[in-house]
């Protein structure tokens, strides 16, 4: 069984005007299945670029990237989209839900692009919403949900495809502390079910919930260590929160 993510000498260079920006300058990284990893670094350290490449939203200028043993560094746009749909679930800082679209339809959306039938789609989306404790809110639109609830819809959307990797880019950046705990608890639950969660954050107290912390600076990994993750304080009363 190959490792989930294997990156060798990954470089990413942008041209901005007359300048060549070297966002990643040779990153080697191996991530096994079922881990929780936090990628840390200040802004400009290259952590977002690394996440974009890991998430198959972007491609490296140089180097090899094997995802589940498959080289995805040179795929076409359509092939990349397919890999994203099946392998990766995204959770963004700003939730990125479709407005004026119900929670259920937001969660169903990735399945539509995989050609899953309507009945199956509905069943799986309902199950995913239940996993993030949003049963009964499936018909709510994003503007009728709190920030924490919106982020949980986004997590459900990432879970619904049964993708092995969840990439969360500053998932708690727009949330208060209490709601952040909830989101982190849900993400830890996902790891316990055997999925890999990759967190991108600049907050060390969020990174403390991961089993492994990778720190980037100037496009290079400068620190990579394992730790015993913190457990978020027990949820007080999740479900009454927006009732």
């Amino acid at each position: 069984m190959p490792p989930l993510i294997e990156m060798r000498a990954i470089e990413r260079t942008y041209v901005m005007g007359d300048n060549l920006v070297r966002a990643l300058r040779g990153v080697d990284l191996t991530i096994e299945q079922g881990a929780s990893i936090a990628i840390m670094g200040t802004s400009g350290s290259g952590k977002s670029t690394l996440m974009n490449i890991m998430g198959c939203l972007d491609q490296p200028t140089k180097g090899n990237y094997l995802l589940h043993g498959r080289d995805v560094a040179r795929l076409s746009r359509a092939q990349l989209a397919d890999v994203r749909g099946r392998m990766i679930g995204f959770v963004f800082q700003s939730f990125n839900l479709l407005s004026r679209t119900s929670a259920l339809e937001n969660v169903e959306m990735p399945l539509m692009y995989q050609g899953v039938g309507a009945g199956e789609r509905h069943r799986r989306a309902m199950a995913a919403l239940e996993r993030v404790n949003l049963k009964g809110r499936e018909d709510h639109h994003p503007n009728q949900l709190s920030g924490g609830q919106q982020q949980r819809v986004a997590i459900a959307r990432a879970l619904v495809t049964e993708a092995p990797v969840i990439m969360a880019d500053e998932p708690t950046g727009n949330l208060d502390t209490k709601t952040s705990y909830e989101v982190m608890a849900i993400l830890q639950g996902i790891v316990a079910q055997g999925k890999t969660v990759i967190l991108v954050t600049h907050e060390s107290d969020i990174a403390a919930y991961a089993q492994r912390v990778i720190t980037l600076r100037d496009g290079l990994i400068i620190d990579d260590r394992k730790q015993t993750p913190l457990t978020p304080p027990p949820p007080e009363k999740h479900d009454q929160e927006a009732a």
């Binding site: 939203l57 746009r77 359509a78 397919d82 994203r84 749909g85 679930g89 479709l98 959306m109």
Partner: peptide, 11 residues
């Protein structure tokens, strides 16, 4: 968003 969750250019 659609592209991130797997929409191909043709979709």
């Amino acid at each position: 968003i659609r592209m991130a969750v797997g929409a191909k250019p043709v979709d």
